[in-house]
Amino acid sequence: MKNHILPAIKLTLACIIVFAVIYPLSIWGIALIAAPNHGEGEVLTQKGRVVGYALIGQSFTQAKYFNGRPSAVGYNAAGSGGSNKGPTNPDYLASVKFAIDTFMLNNPSIKKEDVPVELVTASGSGLDPDISPKAALVQVPRIAKARNMSEDKLKELIKQHTESPLLGFMGPSKINVLKLNISLDNLN
């Protein structure tokens, strides 16, 4: 063991230089040249003001906006995480029921069997930027009323913003809620 100590310490220092200094600095260099927004994360603007990160979901509670999913961290990306509630936890099931009732109250024209499950369950990160196209469509009557605009126009907007599965055949379809709401504001 003794004659391994010195080589071990030297090799550790060498590995730190190669894998924890040169490697990350190289990736940083590539980011500065090639990545969107130089690796700072892509931001979205509205009328010149930065309103958020494209990949980070936001809390939308007002009736005039498309609402995202419930979040265990209140969409504050200083942290992240899910509810970590087990599927049979009685408190958890009560909170889902409450979320369904609240949704029905805010969207009285919608039938219960049309409420998509992702709108009443919290995401894993608490920062989920997306909803499914169905979850957007189900909010159309409420937003149309709040903004006094036609439902067809909203449906058209949803269609424009729907991102299809990867290469058309892998994974789910989705809609970025922040991008959708920025376009919605720009319509008026």
């Binding site: 999913r69 899910g82 509810s83 970590n84 509630k85 599927p87 049979t88 958890y92 099931l93 889902v96 029921k97 369904i100 219960k112 069997e113 049309d114 409420v115 998509p116 499950v117 992702e118 009443v120 369950t121 919290a122 995401s123 894993g124 990160s125 989920d128 930027p129 997306d130 909803i131 499914s132 169905k134 994974g171 789910p172 989705k174």
Partner: peptide
Amino acid sequence: NPMISKMGIDMSSGAMEGKEVRFG
């Protein structure tokens, strides 16, 4: 989740508690 299913909502996305929409 069958216990959420029983509440009568649209379960077509599956068990979404703790999951992200972009992965499914």
